Amino acid sequence: MVAALSAAARLGILIKNVADIELAARINCFIFDKTGTITTGELAVSRLAPQPNVKPAELLFYAAAAEKFSNHPVAKALRKLAEEVNLTLPDPTDFSETAGRGVKAKVNDHTIMVGRVQWLKEQGIAIPEIEGTELKEAEGWSLIYVSKDGQFLGWIGLQDTIRQGAKETISELQTIGVRRIALISGDRQAVTTRVGQEIGVDEAVGECLPQHKVEFVQTMRSKGYKVAVVGDGVNDAPALAAGDMGIAMGAAGSEVAIHSATIALMNNDLKRLPFLIRLSRDTRKVINQNFLFGVLFIIGGLTLASFGYLNPIVAALLHNTGSLMVIFNSARLVRRGEEFQPYISSSYTQAVEATTQTPIPSTA
Rank of each mutant, 00 (worst) to 15 (best):
A3L: 02
L5V: 08
S6P: 07
A7P: 10
G12T: 02
I15C: 04
N17K: 15
E22L: 10
E22K: 10
L23R: 14
R26L: 14
F32N: 07
D33G: 04
T35S: 01
T35V: 06
T37L: 13
G41K: 13
R47M: 13
A49M: 12
V54G: 03
K55I: 08
P56A: 01
L59D: 02
F61T: 06
A63K: 04
F69N: 14
N71S: 12
V74P: 00
R79K: 14
V85P: 11
N86S: 08
L89V: 08
E97Q: 04
E97A: 11
R101S: 01
V103M: 00
A105S: 00
V114S: 10
I130Q: 01
E131C: 04
T133R: 05
E134F: 00
A138C: 03
W141N: 15
S142V: 15
Y145C: 04
S147T: 00
S147R: 08
G150C: 06
L153N: 03
G154K: 07
T161A: 08
I162T: 10
I162L: 09
I162D: 00
R163T: 03
G165V: 03
E168S: 13
I170H: 06
R180H: 15
T192I: 11
R194S: 12
V195W: 03
I199F: 01
G206V: 02
H212P: 07
F216M: 05
V217R: 09
V217S: 08
P238N: 08
A239Y: 11
L240K: 07
L240S: 07
A242W: 04
M245W: 09
G246C: 07
A248E: 05
G250N: 07
G250Y: 06
G250W: 00
A252L: 09
I263W: 02
M266G: 00
L270Q: 09
R272S: 05
L276R: 05
L279D: 01
S280V: 08
D282F: 13
D282V: 11
D282G: 15
T283C: 03
K285Y: 10
V286N: 08
N288R: 15
N290K: 04
F293L: 12
F297G: 09
I299D: 04
I299T: 10
S306C: 05
F307S: 03
L310V: 09
L310I: 00
P312R: 07
G322Y: 02
S323L: 12
M325N: 11
R332D: 00
R335N: 14
R335D: 12
R335P: 01
R335K: 15
R336K: 15
E338G: 14
F340V: 11
Q341Y: 14
P342G: 09
S347P: 07
Q350P: 12
E353T: 15
E353D: 15
A354Y: 13
T358G: 10
